[in-house]
Design a protein around this nucleic acid. Structure first.
Lengths: 200, 200
DNA sequence: GTCTATAGTGCGATAGAC
DNA sequence: GTCTATCGCACTATAGAC
């Protein structure tokens, strides 16, 4: 018989999301979360380096999928084609059943600036990992960073659309659409974007 | 005769940067910064909502330049052309004399995750303002957000390059180059194109 | 597991500028 | 008198040190 229930981390994460959603992030103390699942504040901070992290911990599989997705692209692919491949791999980790959960979580994050900051930081980490992988494929800077950040941007926009009320398309489908928008953005701009440079 | 020295906020910002640069961000307390310019901790927090903000406060002129830059573009301009225009306007706020200061400030930010988070958050705010301005010009979503975020990405990359040791080009020149790289990213030949030597 | 420093808030008091 | 910048003090929660 275990001295303590297993899955402390997961229970803390679930309890935290629930409390944040009902009371708000700032109105919920770490001690409160811990006690709600029979643990102490100290234990909470042993699992999560800070209070916000309870909502973000465990997205490595996520990052792994991204990197794996990069590697499945043929070696002669352009940076954006590689990104498209990685995007599909990550997006497929979010089946439609996850939408309700994702919505709740995102509404908590959107209502708190500190959580938004952490979210952006995580997304930036993804982009920087992707950039390193692109460089490893022989893509030079600044193209590698540019492509990686663009991929993160596309993912962010697609995700926001995916959880919008009434949206029926799957995340991979939306991501693909948004990526095409990005490409046509460049195409439309190519004509004179190069000429435009106002005072240069 | 004034009871207080004027410019409390600016003195706090200068003292903070200096202390952060010499001792590190976490090793410097808000009280220490305040006392170094003859004020109390409480006063520090009346000027800045939190400790990190002392490094970011006062970048509205910055944001204003961005929005103004958007508006100088002709009304038939494509999203990317508008962004190019805004980029030039913002970049011109950073003359070469500012490089040493920018370098010091950036090295402090780069060494602390919490400061990186705040920086990303500010950049995201810029992007969201830009997106709103693009929508006001009649550009639909998701093109508006996509173009705005791309502009922010380009600025970030260009800025990082600008403060790199040994870089001689001006920020507007670098930003223009990076934007062109973004446009050529979707082209098939990108990989070999980016391998070409140093630009200009 | 306990103890402590620091971040950050709320509120009342003070003292000059207008 | 009002407005605004400051101080001082008490307080809580976070987060790290011991």
């Amino acid at each position: 018989m275990a001295r303590w229930e297993p899955g402390a981390r997961e229970r803390l994460q679930a309890a935290a999301l629930e409390l944040f959603a009902t009371q708000g992030f700032e109105q919920t103390t770490a001690a409160e979360i811990a006690e709600s699942v029979g643990l102490t504040e100290r234990t909470f901070f042993r699992h999560f380096s800070d209070k916000r992290e309870v909502l973000f911990y465990g997205q490595q599989d996520f990052l792994q999928a991204f990197v794996d997705g990069l590697d499945t692209a043929p070696s002669e692919a352009s940076p954006l084609e590689v990104i498209a491949s990685a995007l599909q791999a990550v997006a497929s980790l979010f089946p439609d059943e996850r939408r309700p959960y994702a919505r709740t979580r995102q509404s908590v994050i959107d209502q708190n600036p500190a959580l938004r900051e952490r979210e952006l930081h995580k997304l930036a980490g993804l982009a920087s990992t992707a950039a390193a992988a692109l460089r490893a494929r022989g893509i030079a800077e600044p193209a590698a960073t540019l492509a990686a950040e663009s991929g993160a941007t596309v993912f962010g926009i697609a995700f926001a659309q995916w959880i919008r009320e009434g949206e029926r398309r799957s995340l991979p489908d939306i991501a693909s659409d948004v990526l095409h928008e990005l490409v046509s953005l460049s195409r439309a701009g190519t004509r004179s974007a190069t000429v435009t440079g106002p005072r240069r």
